[in-house]
Amino acid sequence: MFAPIHHISLLTRFAERNHFFYTTILGLRFVKKTVNQENHKMLHYYYGDYAGTPGSVITFFIVPALGRRYDNDSFLSTIGLKIPKGSLDFWAQRLADAQIKFVKEDNLLHFTDEDHVDLRLIEVEQGPLEQNLQVKNAIPGDKQILGLSSTEFHSAELDKTADFFYRLLGWKNNQGRIQLNETDFIQLLPTETTEKTRMGRGSMDHIAFSVNDEQALDKLHNKAQNQGWNIEKSVHRGYFKSLYIKEPGGMRVEFATLSPGFTIDEPLNSLGEHLALPPFLEEKRLEIETTIYKEQ
């Protein structure tokens, strides 16, 4: 199934706590342990469903000595996650058992992780994950997280952000919400300060939206150039090809292809078990492994 939100990437300081929260508490699979391709000393963790399907993936750059974040004039926040119909009470009990404070509102649970990332589990009118995407863990298959559903753009100039999405993608803003499909959406929220945002623990580096293939991505790249948007770069990450654009508020938006996926450098049944490097980094493995930041 085509998921409009491909993945969301954030920053964390403590690898072990992050791994425990997203695998043991939320039940996602650790699908990839690799490095930041811009800084090979920095680990990059990926979590998702069993196959790391686009639309299920949350990633974290592990940054030692990372300080507190300051969300001010322009920032991304909040990870909305879909859970199957009839599973809200299960998740409320699970969070309570783990002594994680949460607020229950209608069909959602609102809580935070170790880095104070806002998370929402949203019960939707969908059945469970397909069996081949269910993670083998203590969470029953019919209760497991289905995938990403939403995030928030915070800016003092939301009209410009809305214009970016409409002109480039044809996505319409309806009173601060851009509905991507029946369940998934982007929320546009105003900020009222001129103080600059400072990245830190729990900051969202970017949100990535799905593009079918490289041909569609190249077409989007050309359109963005013709419209004069702030294009950062186009690069192949091995697992997918990406186009990065800074929207008018300065927030990083990525567009990523659906393939080739996470099995290019390790088998499906052992994803995440070892440090994985895409083929173009494999020849540098010894250098990377000797200089990588120590996990905390």
Rank of each mutant, 00 (worst) to 15 (best):
F209T: 04
I288D: 08
N36S: 06
Q227S: 00
R201Y: 07
F209A: 03
F209W: 05
G238V: 12
L43W: 03
L109I: 05
G228A: 02
Q227K: 00
Q296T: 14
E195C: 02
K85D: 03
M199K: 14
R120W: 05
Y46W: 12
N18G: 04
E214K: 15
F240Y: 13
A256H: 03
H7C: 11
N230K: 12
D142A: 08
R201L: 12
G67V: 00
P64D: 08
T59P: 00
Q131S: 13
K160E: 00
W171C: 06
L129E: 02
F20P: 06
N173F: 00
A256C: 08
G228K: 05
E287L: 14
F60M: 01
P260L: 04
E289D: 09
H236K: 15
K294Y: 09
G200E: 01
E123D: 10
A92S: 14
N72V: 03
V235K: 15
G67D: 00
Q175K: 10
Q134F: 05
L28R: 03
S242C: 09
K32V: 02
V57T: 05
G170I: 13
G200R: 02
P190Y: 08
A98M: 04
P4G: 09
S9P: 00
F90Y: 15
K219L: 10
N226A: 14
D97R: 14
T197C: 05
Q225P: 00
G249C: 04
I178P: 08
V211M: 03
D142C: 03
G202T: 10
L76W: 14
N18K: 05
I186F: 01
Y293F: 15
E114Q: 14
E192H: 15
